[in-house]
Nucleic acid binder design. Structure first.
Lengths: 201, 201
DNA sequence: TAATTATAATACGGCCCGTCTCGTATGCCA
DNA sequence: TGGCATACGAGACGGGCCGTATTATAATTA
């Protein structure tokens, strides 16, 4: 193609990236020092030295803003994993990496807050799923399908159900807030449970 | 004992049970018609035709009030289960019963709201765990330990981890809000997965 | 009867919401 | 260069709900 599709510039003053970054920074900043409950749009605006309207113009809600800050600042992000020939080892590696991220104070706090918001707002729930959980599910699916192809996993396995078990367990621990967070040992335990099953032999 | 321990009556006008019930009723009532977000203490007081102070006197927060309403009105309650000789059948029965309760509109809505609150308030999180999740965990623990005693389950199994897998899966589905809620088939799937494991044989 | 506590009703200051209005800044296009 | 469209920081505004305080009355004990 000779003619590239040019981004059609809207008329008027363009959005200021400095303002945008400032708002996201302020949000992350406040999250590290305050409870989610105590963070307000006005507070973020004041911290970022930005007009309130500039926030309302670009983000529909506090939750959307924070979700964007989290995704953008790549606090909750994992590079794709190279699969070995051993499915269960791969699964364990994936879980260890995931749990390591989840153990960071800021991450667990953020996930907690955004999960809460997702329960109270159906629209945001869908966005949150897309931005956070979908990728995790896909990662596990990928590993499991690979395992099926290698004939290391039973062909009739319900991949979706397994993914829900895995993520559910870590989610449960995070949200119930009674046990310690997941670590490497837990990853091993979960994988070996799923691999061998409960049945006495 | 001849002398019973008499409840030491406090002086002054006693707490009105009619008022208490009215408040709890109003709360449940509003929950069935409004989003949790839109329910306010003032609204509950007005609906119950009760002074605002009477609510603040007895409940520390909206969440505590609703948790009490849910527990008291036994919307989220399961009678104890009689264990058969087949552990995996018992497990499946337990899950089917649990999922059936969770599928009720009011229950899932309530759990969602209270989980959200629990994420935003550490004190309430502990209360919520005690009132809701603890019992579920104990039910599963009981079944699993029984299975170990019957030698139908491997003796070295991490009962805690299994309970987290089971509850986590249903919690994940409920909270992520993308898939359909759990049903009998899912209970079967989960149990057979846990029983036999993933490994190809 | 006096003391004590609960109750319904309502008033109060305060915080934050989300919208609106300024005056100004920054880009496009003719 | 000037006109137009939009973004920007700042802040005013009405409104809702918060949690507390006040008041007059009711219920119970000593």
């Amino acid at each position: 193609m000779v003619h590239e599709v040019k981004a059609k510039r809207a008329p008027g003053r363009p959005r200021s990236d400095a303002t945008r970054q400032g708002v996201l920074d302020a949000a992350i900043d406040l999250m590290s020092t305050h409870a989610y409950r105590d963070i307000t749009i006005e507070g973020i605006a004041a911290t970022a030295r930005v007009g309130k309207q500039s926030i309302y113009r670009w983000w529909p809600s506090k939750a959307d803003l924070l979700l964007e800050a989290y995704t953008e600042r790549s606090i909750y992000k994992l590079p794709p994993q190279i699969l070995s020939g051993d499915v269960f080892a791969d699964l364990e590696v994936d879980l260890v990496r995931y749990f390591t991220v989840l153990r960071q104070e800021m991450v667990s706090k953020g996930v907690r807050s955004l999960v809460a918001e997702a329960q109270l707002d159906e629209t945001f729930r869908a966005k949150f799923y897309e931005a956070v959980w979908r990728k995790r599910c896909e990662a596990v699916h990928r590993i499991l399908h690979h395992g099926v192809a290698l004939r290391q996993i039973r062909a009739d396995v319900d991949v979706e159900a397994v993914a829900h078990l895995i993520h559910g367990a870590s989610l449960y621990r995070l949200l119930s807030g009674t046990s310690r967070p997941f670590d490497e040992d837990d990853a091993r335990t979960v994988v070996s449970l799923l691999r061998d099953g409960l049945k006495a032999r």
